[in-house]
Design a protein around this nucleic acid. Structure first.
Length: 423
RNA sequence: CGGGGAGUAGCUCAGUCUGGUAGAGUGUCUGCUUUGGGAGCAGAAAGUCGCAGGUUCGAAUCCUGUCUCCCCGACCA
């Protein structure tokens, strides 16, 4: 993408409504624009990031045999009345009436819809287990939206649902998703702390929140420091969950060797048994031909929230520092002045064949301004063609994260390991 | 929903107390000079002062109503 074609306008000052750094940087770098309280338009840069995160989440779901599908945003109230949640959900649910006066709602979650769908498609224990997910916009009419997309009313969520024959199998499934989540977050550059959670409105006997440590996190948590210092992917579910972690009121202050911090909840998983399958009359026939009710679980990841959470984790006073695979652009080509614009353009064409998502700042602006924008947006690499090219035929490559500079000739540039980037 | 604050140019904000021609910085546009870290000079465009009503000769400013946004709390991916 050439900057001359990009819908982008960096702001030097933060709009005053933004209180936390991720919100400020998202506004300053033209990632989002607020439409109304808690509802945002995703501008080109923000949308690219959102899709990159979505893709990482998607590939990890696919790896555990989870089926991607797409359920509607608008739902009928019928199923919710059946499950008993139409009344329970209260004002957080956005209720709508169509022209026939039918009661509809903008889905805040999908347990009802998927349970109903499942009961129509799977009738035998042989069809179990089944995992399905979708990545879809949700709406919860929060009392007080805040912090930009961190707590919006409209948000993009990956929600998966599992169906198992019995409780033990459902627990195994739960563990599979648990480990899948750790891997997903690691690919996003994050190491969240799995916190035992109260099961709340969704109910069930087993639930974990995945919290990213951040000063601006909304909830307090206490945890065993080993949950942060060790690679959890090398441990088993039992080893991990035997370490101490607790949130808010569940924190045991008498515990020693425990760290108190604040966290951003980026994922939440539940094992809730037959809480929905039973009232919605979802069953399969077992090997004796008898009706049994599947055991279910649901598994959420806040995709739009993750954009903000990742910025909270990776930024400095100059702007965002995107991990390579999340960044809207991987390499930003900058010509220091118009003299090099053609050479820069050729380089852009060449590199575009090798990498996806290269950008070329072809605007007629001073070098300083272009570098500032590149830093603000958080592009992992800037590639400058300027005086060093003139004098020594060298390109200058700057790493956003470390600030390191490399001077390379054309041959070296071709072999340069741009992917080796971690903030 | 309770408590607090704010709506004036794209953005940040002054002006409101004490009514009298709508302001600054930044950004935008044009021209020239520039071009290695948000360049310089000159010029220009840009706001029904959130909306509605009222008081007044006259309202951004005073009064009434209303809408929206933000912050603190209880709920949540």
């Amino acid at each position: 993408m050439r900057f001359s074609n990009l819908l982008f306008n960096s702001l030097k000052e933060s709009p005053k409504e933004a209180k936390i750094v991720s919100h400020q940087l998202m506004l300053r770098s033209s990632m989002i624009q607020q439409h109304t309280s808690g509802i945002y338009t995703w501008l080109p840069l923000g949308f690219k990031v959102l899709k990159n995160i979505e893709e990482i989440v998607r590939s990890n779901q696919d790896q555990i045999g989870c089926n991607e599908m797409l359920m509607s945003t608008i739902q009928s109230s019928d199923l919710w009345t059946k499950s008993g949640r139409y009344a329970d959900y209260g004002k957080e649910m956005l209720r709508i009436k169509d022209r026939h006066d039918n009661e509809l709602l903008y889905g805040p979650t999908n347990e009802e819809v998927i349970t109903d769908l499942f009961s129509n498609y799977v009738n035998s224990y042989k069809g179990l287990p089944k995992y399905v997910y979708h990545i879809q916009w949700k709406f919860r009419d929060e009392i007080r939206p805040r912090f930009g997309v961190m707590r919006g009313r409209e948000f993009l969520m990956k929600d998966a649902y599992s169906f198992d024959l019995d409780h033990d199998k459902a627990v195994k499934t739960y563990q599979t998703f648990f480990m899948c989540y750790l891997k997903t977050f690691k690919e996003l550059g994050l190491q969240p702390i799995p916190v035992k959670a109260a099961t709340g409105a969704i109910g069930g006997d087993l639930s974990h929140e995945f919290q990213i440590l951040a000063k601006t996190g909304e909830s307090e948590l206490a945890y065993d420091p080993e949950l942060v210092s060790q690679d959890l992917l090398e441990k088993s579910f039992d080893e991990i969950t035997s370490m101490y972690s607790a949130s808010d009121e569940m924190i045991d202050k008498s515990k020693s060797n425990v760290v108190i911090g604040r966290g951003i909840e980026v994922g939440h998983i539940f094992n809730f048994g037959t809480k929905y399958s039973e009232p919605l009359e979802c069953y399969v026939l077992n090997n004796e031909g008898k009706k049994v009710t599947p055991y279910m679980g649901s598994y959420g990841i806040g995709v739009s929230r993750l954009t903000a959470a990742i910025i909270e984790a990776f930024h400095d006073d100059k702007g965002i520092k995107w991990p390579f695979n999340i960044s809207p652009f991987k390499i930003n080509i900058i010509s220091s002045n118009d003299k090099f614009i053609d050479i820069a353009g050729e380089l852009y064409d060449t590199l575009s064949k090798k990498y996806i998502n290269i950008s070329f700042d072809d605007r007629d602006l001073s070098l300083g301004r272009k570098i500032k924008d590149s830093e603000l947006i958080g592009i992992p690499w800037s590639l400058i063609i300027g005086k060093n090219f003139d004098e020594k035929n060298e390109f200058e490559v700057i790493n956003r994260s470390s600030g390191e500079k490399f001077f390379v000739n054309k041959q070296e540039l071709e072999n340069f390991q741009f992917e080796q980037y971690t903030p």
